[in-house]
């Protein structure tokens, strides 16, 4: 089967990639049964879902959606085995939410997950912004955008702050051209890549209002809520565990108080602010150790004390 589809041409045959993996199986007879649990295990979805559960705090709605998508793809694959084929689901997504709510992290997981269930061939993430897609002079945009799209094929194209693509105030802006190419590819090369747009909620709404075609081509609009205080503390613990640090009881209290205060300040960036606070605590921890003691044990080296969260922390803007 020759696939001669150019951008504008329909591609009637489906990508046979899935079935060729295990040597073009015969369709199962109608009265056969398949073991769902075994299939699940073979696909390795559970590991990804479990690691999503473990490493991402909160985000209940997002996790539910990921589960649903994984289930759909698995069931589709089983249907395929029975020779009941359906069209490939549209998996382009839009992540909206405030800074630091985990949009990029989830996008990365999404690539891996879609790769596991056989939807994507590689599952890598290509993360771009306006600069990478839009050219500087006439005729520069199309090759540039196509270049990026080619790199993303087989994986996920993650466009951060997608609303910058469209500048309403300048009708000769090249962003419009990039959007048009993007739309074409999202429609025609659906087999090859998944596009995920991300941005702040209100500005994405504006973007979709001015580009209705984009909105309708995206099946999954997922909103990332802000984290609660408890969730932020949990995130902090996760981060510290990765860096092999721990909080003393008092330090946790101090940190909680600091977060509480910080959450209501402007430019609070959820998990990103937590990370920055941790980085500063590590700095202070190190200089405190050097100043205070000559002898220290492993415990001292790994434990953060309230003093590490003190100082001008509350006044810090990050």
């Amino acid at each position: 089967m020759r696939r001669r589809g150019a951008f504008g041409m329909a591609q009637p045959d489906r990508d046979p990639e899935w079935s060729t993996e295990d040597g073009q199986e015969e369709a199962l007879p109608a009265d056969a049964t398949v073991d769902l649990a075994a299939e699940r295990k073979a696909a390795g979805i559970d590991e990804v879902l479990a690691s999503v559960d473990r490493e991402l705090v909160g985000l209940a709605a997002v996790k539910t959606r990921i589960r649903e998508i994984a289930a759909l793809l698995l069931v589709d694959r089983l249907r395929e085995r029975f020779g009941v084929s359906s069209s490939r689901p549209n998996l382009h997504m839009c992540f909206t939410g405030n800074p630091g709510t985990g949009k990029t992290t989830v996008a990365m997981r999404m690539g891996e997950l879609l790769h596991r269930v056989g939807y994507l061939e590689q599952g890598h993430l290509v993360s771009v912004t306006r600069d990478d897609l839009v050219g500087q002079y006439v005729g520069h945009t199309a090759p540039k955008t196509k270049e990026v799209l080619k790199r993303a094929m087989g994986g996920v194209l993650f466009i951060d702050e997608a609303y910058y693509l469209y500048r309403a105030e300048n009708e000769r802006d090249y962003g419009q051209e990039a959007i048009e190419i993007l739309l074409q590819v999202m429609e025609n090369q659906r087999d090859d890549l998944v596009v995920i747009l991300a941005g702040y909620t209100d500005r994405m709404d504006g973007f979709f209002t001015s580009n209705p075609g984009m909105s309708s081509r995206i099946a999954h609009h997922i909103d990332f809520p802000d984290y609660h205080l408890d969730e932020l503390v949990k995130i902090a613990h996760l981060m510290l565990r990765q860096e092999r640090y721990q909080l003393s009881c008092d330090a946790e209290e101090t940190f909680r108080a600091h977060l509480q205060h910080r959450m209501h300040q402007p430019r609070f960036a959820n998990a990103r602010s937590v990370r920055n606070a941790m980085e500063r605590a590590r700095l202070r921890h190190a200089s405190r150790l050097l100043d205070e003691t000559n002898l220290c044990d492993r415990e001292d080296l790994t434990r953060l004390e309230p003093a590490d969260f003190g100082g001008n922390l509350t006044g810090a803007q990050e």
Binding site: K150, M153, G154
Partner: peptide, 8 residues
């Protein structure tokens, strides 16, 4: 990363 780009 993927052959799809070349095929395209």
């Amino acid at each position: 990363k993927d052959a799809a780009g070349v095929l395209y």
